[in-house]
Amino acid sequence: MSDESKKQLNRREFFSFVTVGWVAFTSAVAGLASLAFRYSYPNVTFDPEMDFIAGFPADYEEGVDERWKNGFGVWMVKQEGKLVALSNICTHLGCVPNWLPAELKFKCPCHGSGYYMNGINFEGPAPRPLERYKIALTPEGKIKVDKTKIYRYEKGQWDHPDSYLSV
């Protein structure tokens, strides 16, 4: 009896047994860890409102309009016959720049990035210009800003007809 059991588990079989055991153990741990990882990504999140109606194009004067900045994080900038919805999130690390009317620039308080009125970066560490949001007219002639769609200058997307309104 004891001889037989010794034969059943020789050296090579023992090691393959151990290998299978370790592979199974490792994959079980990895599987559980990845489940726990996935657990940290909820399926539903409650985000703030991503689009809003911003009045009529005639409401805006030439220059930077800050009325939607606090509620929706958008500057309406009218310049050279174009009205754009400019994101107020600094492209460096996501702070909110301030509009300095005296110096005609947006200046970020966190690390000093500066942007011209049109959103192009010129000083400080910001790597790229501010982003534009999709802007369109509703059938009633009101402006609708959709923050889910962004247009980036360095990718040549500012020529896209949805990225500005001709006024």
């Binding site: 460096h92 690390l93 909110v96 301030n98 970020c108 308080p109 966190c110 690390h111 000093g112 560490p125």
Partner: peptide, 26 residues
């Protein structure tokens, strides 16, 4: 969340990193 204080500083032990951010990309 709509208004950043000026200056907006990280905790002091990260200010060395924040100073590096002036010279490097995030």
């Amino acid at each position: 969340p709509t208004w950043a204080p000026n200056p907006a500083k990280a905790p002091w032990y990260f200010l060395g990193l924040q100073e590096m951010l002036v010279y490097f990309d995030p």
